[in-house]
């Protein structure tokens, strides 16, 4: 395989690829970052926490998008990686007094290893389409069931992050309303975005996309399909694990359902689908749409209009809206919001 890689790379390099505005993407990320930095100082605390949630959604979904969008392997089990990140952080912090930053790195490594294992098995046995999605789902559910019943990770109780007397960057803990949480989440999201831009423009990313579009052709020109698919999955899992590790530090609490539940997998899928699958900005746009919905519906249900008086204090409306949004997007804007906008701009 290695002997055939070189000519394949050569042809890839000599044949002009359709020009992608990679540097413009990077520039846009830089500009947006600078614009967003003062945000938590302007927003009231309640809104600032919504902004943090948006960033967590975005981070999860950037990870999902890498594997399922650019890699073309539809994952219905990203809760596995989110949960591994969350539990690695929680376990090391609570049981061994290890800094959450190290827990985050460990979580990334374990999630990447787990994804590589699942990916290897799934690719080795040639699972495709629905079967692949169901296999990823099964692994996430197995982790949830195992965590729920295992003393090793505190069973269904999960972990509470111990509160510290003073703020600390090393322990990733600040005043609940501190802007630092937003800045950290922003930093992590920006890193994930840059990584995904660099990945997609890199040779590895182009190979992964080639394998997605036509696996046989990609293999025929000498691309080691398995290697690049596994690389894509590992990277995707690591990014989603970061979201999990940060989630624990921000909400100070994790349990098997919050970490590995199928709703977590859905939360990783929705932003990318709403914003635009296999686009750099899709997950971010989708997260901006989804993040605040939760608060809007909660406000409506707290003081419902008279006709809906009986719904006061009930939950579930936010997810109903997600569901409706999902169906509308898939039926009417299959490219997502960003995809539809891009099409309109390029036509002009």
């Amino acid at each position: 395989m290695t002997t055939t890689t070189a000519p394949a790379a050569e042809t890839a390099a000599t044949k002009p690829l359709p020009r992608q505005p990679w540097n413009r993407h990077l520039l846009a990320i830089a500009v947006l970052t600078v614009l967003l930095i003062p945000l938590p100082l302007i927003l009231p605390p309640a809104q600032a926490s919504v902004a943090v949630r948006v960033l967590i959604f975005a981070l999860m979904s950037i990870g999902w998008n890498m594997m399922s969008g650019f890699g073309g392997m539809f994952s219905f089990g990203h809760a596995a990686y989110f949960g591994i990140g969350a539990y690695a952080g929680g376990y090391l912090l609570v049981e061994h007094d290890v800094s959450p930053w190290i827990g985050m790195l460990v979580g990334m490594a374990v999630a990447a290893a787990f994804a590589t294992l699942i990916g290897f098995l799934a690719l080795r046995y040639k699972l495709r389409g629905a079967y692949f999605a169901l296999a990823t789902f099964a692994f996430a559910e197995m982790l949830r069931l195992w965590a729920t019943n295992s003393e090793f990770v505190n069973r269904a109780v999960g972990y509470h992050v111990p509160l510290r007397p003073e703020s600390s960057w090393w322990w990733l803990q600040f005043e609940p309303s501190s802007a630092n949480y937003f800045w950290i989440a922003l930093g992590l999201t920006v890193i994930a975005l840059v990584v995904s831009v660099q990945f997609v423009r890199s040779r590895a990313g182009q190979f992964a996309k080639a394998a997605r579009d036509d696996e046989d052709a990609a293999a025929a020109v000498g691309i080691p399909v398995m290697r690049y698919k596994l690389l894509t999955m590992a990277l995707s899992a690591a990014i989603t694990a970061v979201a999990g590790a940060f989630y624990v530090q921000y909400f100070l609490f994790i349990d098997p359902d919050l970490a590995f539940g199928s709703s977590v997998s859905i939360q990783a899928i929705l932003p990318a689908v709403i914003g635009g699958v296999a686009t750099i900005w899709g997950p971010v746009i989708g997260a901006v749409v989804m993040g605040p919905l939760n608060d809007v519906t909660a406000t409506i249900l707290r003081n419902p209009p008279p006709a809906l008086e009986f719904l006061q204090g009930r939950g579930g409306l936010d997810v109903i809206v997600y569901g409706v949004l999902l169906i509308i997007i898939v039926l009417l804007l299959p490219q997502g919001i960003y995809g539809a906008l891009r099409k309109r701009w390029s036509r002009r």
């Binding site: 859905i266 999902l326 898939v330």
Partner: peptide
């Protein structure tokens, strides 16, 4: 798959 997922989210949460 995503549409049926959306339908299930709607039904389950409407209940």
């Amino acid at each position: 798959l995503l549409i049926t997922l959306g339908i299930s989210l709607i039904i389950e949460n409407a209940l």
